[in-house]
Design a protein around this nucleic acid. Structure first.
Lengths: 245, 245
DNA sequence: AAGTCTCTTTGACGCAGATCAAGTGGAAAC
DNA sequence: GTTTCCACTTGATCTGCGTCAAAGAGACTT
């Protein structure tokens, strides 16, 4: 798989139309192709340490990574979930502000920072797309601030499941009227780190939502949603906003 | 004041070198000048309602505004503090995602959205600067997520004061060895909305920090900091990061 | 088949911060 | 000078979630 991807043409890339290169013309893409390289990480591996010098920036091609911050005493807060097409790194800054960790096996499309910055200066399409993506992330981060600051544990869990479900619903061609179904890409502890809770509270609230029939849980990771509106109500979202990074 | 500003040249503008126009050349600035207009708001006035159609984008020239989100039942979370030079609005989207409210009297330098978007497409300097500003805001938002998700009430208050103090320290030419001094630009309730607390808890923790000698409070708004390192320690920030929007 | 490991669930208890309520102090209005 | 108002403080009580502890449930090893 990785061997195949490593020689893949950008034109065949699964994230071609969503990543930072989405707006590039054929010739621009050819230039990108020159400076890119693939790199893969195993589940659990740290991709970037906070404070490290960043030699590269890049896009998540496959897999899921997390962006997190840790205090000296070990308290930990996830501040972003990186899905395929999401951008990692920050042009114009040379030390990383957050830890980036692979949650599943991850394949990244990387660019050494300097050449990328040079290309960005020369290619408005890249800067434009990156601006668009960054604005989306900022909106998502602000939605998340409401969750962290004001929602109850139950609402937080419902929100997380709703966000993941919404994303799945957008991707998977609507499976003929079947109940909406998601696989949680995170352990209880990772959910806790994301939601500003403890893993025990996460577990308890999932059990409570299950008992109340809001969700149906099979195994640890598989969740079905009989009534999405009910779930959204539990999440405390009136509006239909609230997409994830 | 407003009358004067309304006829001011961009070249004399107090935020000329920090706002979205910072990178513009003289000729580009002249173009911006053509499409800009000033608008002022009184303290307490809402500048933009969440969900409203946005007809304009712009920069805060003077004063302080807040970016906030409200749930149906009234729970409220501030998601940004807008200071002079900060940008309001989102090119490429036409309804506002958050409420923008003037905390003090505010003067905005506005651009109708369409002409601004057109200029942005034609002027890479604007998009570049906006990208830089947006990336900074995203970092600040993520710092804030750690605060909301993981810090104690005392740490939250210390963090807020530290952030405001840091900003003051950057602006005010270091007043000859005098103790660092800040005026809180927010009411207790606004602080609570920013920190994900209640106003009672804010009041209690300020009293506690005062009693412990971490801060010296005169009146309701005026705070002196005898020992910044001590305050930063209370804030739980090991690193020196954590700037505000 | 037993042992180990990791992830998860569940219970018992305590505390930080919310809620409810009363009171203080300064500034503007009359 | 009194009244009203508003932001703020402080106290009493309640509760949601954290903490500590134990045990269940798969998956992999030997």
């Amino acid at each position: 798989m990785q061997g195949l991807l490593a020689h893949q043409q950008c034109s065949d890339c699964p994230i071609r139309h969503r990543a930072v290169c989405a707006r590039c013309e054929t010739d621009e893409l050819a230039q990108m192709e020159q400076i890119k390289y693939y790199r893969s990480y195993q589940a659990g591996q740290t991709i970037i340490w906070s404070g490290d010098r960043m030699e590269f920036v890049g896009s998540v091609v496959t897999g899921i990574a997390t962006l997190a911050q840790t205090m000296e005493d070990g308290r930990r807060q996830m501040v972003g979930l990186l899905l395929p097409s999401d951008f990692v790194g920050r042009p114009g800054r040379d030390t990383a502000a957050f830890d980036v960790t692979a949650t599943t096996d991850v394949m990244m499309c990387c660019f050494r920072k300097k050449p990328f910055e040079a290309m960005m200066a020369a290619t408005p399409h890249i800067a434009q797309r990156l601006l668009e993506m960054t604005l989306d992330e900022l909106d998502a981060a602000r939605e998340w601030m409401l969750l962290l600051g004001r929602k109850t544990a139950r609402e937080k869990i419902a929100s997380l499941i709703a966000i993941i479900a919404r994303r799945e619903a957008a991707l998977q061609v609507r499976r003929a009227k079947g109940m909406l179904t998601v696989d949680l890409p995170l352990t209880r502890e990772e959910m806790a780190d994301y939601l500003g809770l403890t893993l025990e509270t996460v577990s308890r609230q999932i059990s409570a939502l299950k008992k109340d029939g809001v969700i149906i849980v099979e195994g640890n990771r598989h969740v079905s949603i009989p009534d999405l509106d009910r779930l959204l109500e539990e999440a405390g979202d009136d509006n239909d906003g609230g997409m994830l990074v």
